[in-house]
Write a protein that binds this DNA or RNA. Structure first.
Length: 626
RNA sequence: GACCCCAUAGCUCAGCUGGAUAGAGCAACUGCCUUCUAAGCAGUAGGUCACAGGUUCGAAUCCUGUUGGGGUCGCCA
């Protein structure tokens, strides 16, 4: 039991005997400008005590002193009861945990959790948006592991669909047999290049037609297309608001694009793919192979991994059985054209298509199927989807569907929704080329780590090999920490013009604090732990450090409950700062009193362990020296 | 049009289920390395918590409205 919960229980019992109060009281950390460790706000109890806030606080404080308490004194300021813990509570805590390598880890929950993340399209290389997803997904996995869950990291690769056909078609027409080995390009970048080639060719091919279509002149290939165009056009003519107009214009552009020769060829290719055309399948396998090689390299460098891969080419027909089941159960209903729907208006949502009129799957059909598949394959108790917040609605609908289909595991499904990474110019858009490429960024960060280290002259005594490994780790910790310290739910800004810092509230700062401690421990005399314990009181900064350390298990638990690695990141900053304050104020190895040295080294050891464990939760390896 | 999310220092972000004088980092300015790693520490300056109401002993936090930004809304996944 930790100190805070012990104290909380004691207060609860005092409140119960004084006022018959039943609930667990809420304890705050005492603000640094007041004396005390924990603070109880007494306003909630004044009704029961029928006394002023001050008198109530006095009464509770006195009762706590009498109950053989953990506290040594208290003070009352207005309605705030500040409690000072007996100093030996902190020493006991330190003696118990200083060398506990598992400190902060939860006991086994005997539950299995699947974390699905990454889930890329195979038509272009990874960018910064993917990196936020990957870092979050990997970190959440480590967080759940640390909290005692068994974790399966899954990646559902989006390897089929019209977007792949674009790269394939462009390669066929313009590629001239280019391969990763012939060009020296990373496979995913090569395929991405042809995706861009396709988009450019498409733009060229459709530019004039679009211009004319936006003036009311367009000839569709079929009456149906022509009718859709005419409808869109008359809407556009009637529209008044700017927003609406630009949206309707986009609709028309989209329509014209989809009817272009290139897009029609693409759709033919998709149909050929679905029909199992050997030539198309061969090309698809070849180009996907290039992409996987490229992705694997990037993931490896990013330090993320997966236990299980799903491929949409395998799963895209799944879910139809469940659609059938839903029809029989009356959860879904069919319209005249044979399309299948669910009505979620009673849940404040809308009607939603779950299967097309021609019997083919839509996105959500697959997700229904894969949810079932995950459960059958792994028996997961919880299933977490790390997916951007633009799909909030989609997952609301999916979870409701699974619930209405009577799936017991529906309650364990969770959408770990996160915000976009914005650039100063706004949202990243691959079509407009405003993306920050993952491989480029990684390399820039590694270069920056090398330059910083060299500028500080800290390369002495390290082999080139070790230095290279150090730069990789430092670069990654800067990047991961930069991304993970922000609340996942919020959108965040990345400014490529300003490089990510290595100073201040950063990954390297935490690393530095860790490396500094490791350095102390390496040079400490081997017999330091044999000295007699000191009886001297802890200094203010030392007590502050122990208070921060004591918060680690709670931070992990809370981060897990809130699906937020950011809480761990913020904790690590607090811890590193608290330690650096002690470091600045006291000596460790030069401390003449052997007992004091022992106590400080215990604190150093525990801080290093905790920093390392916390970094591990963020998916960051702690460095021994830097 | 409907629904969802967001708005805190010049910039990037904390601020947990309502609690004391709203906190960090960056940028600016001051100090601290012949002593355990200065990628550090200490300090100065910087705020109408978008705006207006409401609930409460107490609101950045909860509720309502307004403004601004982003997202989603039957066949892209």
């Amino acid at each position: 039991m930790n100190i805070e919960s012990a104290l909380s229980l004691e207060i609860q019992s005092v409140l119960n005997s004084l006022y018959g109060w039943e609930q667990a009281p809420k304890l705050d950390q005492t603000r640094p400008e007041f004396e005390g460790d924990f603070t109880l706000v007494v306003f909630p109890f004044v009704r029961a005590s029928r006394k002023s806030p001050e008198a109530t606080a006095e009464e509770i404080g006195a009762a706590l002193m009498n109950s053989g308490s953990l506290i040594s004194s208290y003070n009352v300021i207005k309605g705030f009861l500040n409690l000072v813990l007996k100093a030996d509570n902190w020493s006991i805590f330190l003696d118990r945990e200083w060398n506990n390598l598992q400190f902060g880890h939860g006991s086994s929950k005997d539950q299995k959790v699947m974390v699905e993340y990454a889930s890329p399209n195979t038509n272009k290389p990874l960018h910064l948006g993917h990196m936020r997803n990957n870092f979050l997904g990997y970190s959440l996995s480590q967080l759940f592991k640390a909290s005692g869950y068994e974790v399966v990291m899954a990646n559902l690769i989006n390897d089929r669909g019209i977007h792949i056909c674009k790269s394939m078609l462009a390669w066929q027409r313009f590629g001239d047999g280019e391969t990763p080995s012939s060009s020296g390009m990373k496979g995913d970048h090569l395929v991405g290049k042809y995706y861009v080639v396709f988009e450019n060719a498409l733009r060229e091919q459709t530019q004039k037609t679009i211009e004319l279509a936006l003036q009311g002149q367009y000839n569709g290939h079929s009456p149906a297309v022509q009718e859709r165009y005419q409808q869109a056009w008359s809407k556009l003519e009637a529209a008044k608001e700017d927003k609406q107009i630009s949206k309707l214009k986009d609709d028309i552009k989209e329509l014209v694009r989809n009817q272009s020769e290139l897009m029609l060829a693409c759709q033919d290719m998709l149909r050929a793919w679905e029909a199992g055309d050997p030539e198309v399948l061969h090309l698809w396998k070849t180009m996907n192979g290039w992409v996987y090689e490229g992705f694997d390299a990037t993931w490896k460098r990013m330090g993320v991994s997966f236990d299980k891969f799903y491929y949409e080419s395998d799963t895209y027909t799944l879910g139809k059985d469940l659609v059938q089941e839903g029809l029989e159960k009356g959860v879904f209903y069919a319209k005249e054209d044979g399309s299948v729907w669910i009505d979620l208006r009673d849940a404040g949502l809308d009607e939603k298509l779950v299967q097309r009129g021609d019997g083919t799957s839509v996105y959500i059909t697959q997700d229904i199927g894969t949810a079932q598949l995950k459960y059958e394959e792994f028996g997961v108790d919880r299933s977490i989807y790390v997916v951007g917040n633009e799909q909030d609605y989609h997952f609301k609908v999916l979870f409701l569907i699974m619930e209405r289909l009577g799936r017991s595991y529906a309650s364990g499904m969770y959408h770990a929704s996160y915000g976009m990474v914005d650039l100063p110019s706004g949202k990243m858009k691959s079509r407009e080329g405003t993306v920050v490429d993952a491989d480029d960024l990684l390399q820039e960060m590694v270069d920056a780590a090398r330059e910083t280290t060299e500028a500080l002259g800290k390369t002495d005594g390290l082999a080139q090999e070790d230095l290279n490994a150090l730069y990789e780790t430092l670069a990654l910790s800067a990047l991961k920490f930069f991304i993970l310290k922000v609340d996942p739910k919020k959108r965040m800004l990345f400014n490529p013009a300003e490089s990510i810092d290595f100073q201040g509230d950063t990954g390297p700062f935490v690393q530095y604090s860790h490396a500094r401690i490791r350095s102390i421990l390496r040079t400490a005399p081997s017999s330091w732990n044999e000295a007699a314990d000191t009886q001297l009181a802890l200094s203010e900064t030392e007590t502050a450090l122990l208070k921060v350390l004591a918060q680690f298990p709670g931070a992990v638990t809370q981060a897990c409950e809130q699906y937020s690695p950011a809480l761990v990141a913020q904790f690590l900053l607090d811890l590193a700062k608290a330690f650096n304050r002690v470091y600045n104020e006291h000596s460790f190895l030069k401390e003449p009193d052997a007992g004091l040295m022992k106590r400080r080294l215990k604190m150093a050891q525990m801080t290093a362990n905790t920093l390392k464990n916390g970094l591990a939760v963020l998916g960051i390896d702690a460095v021994e020296r830097m």
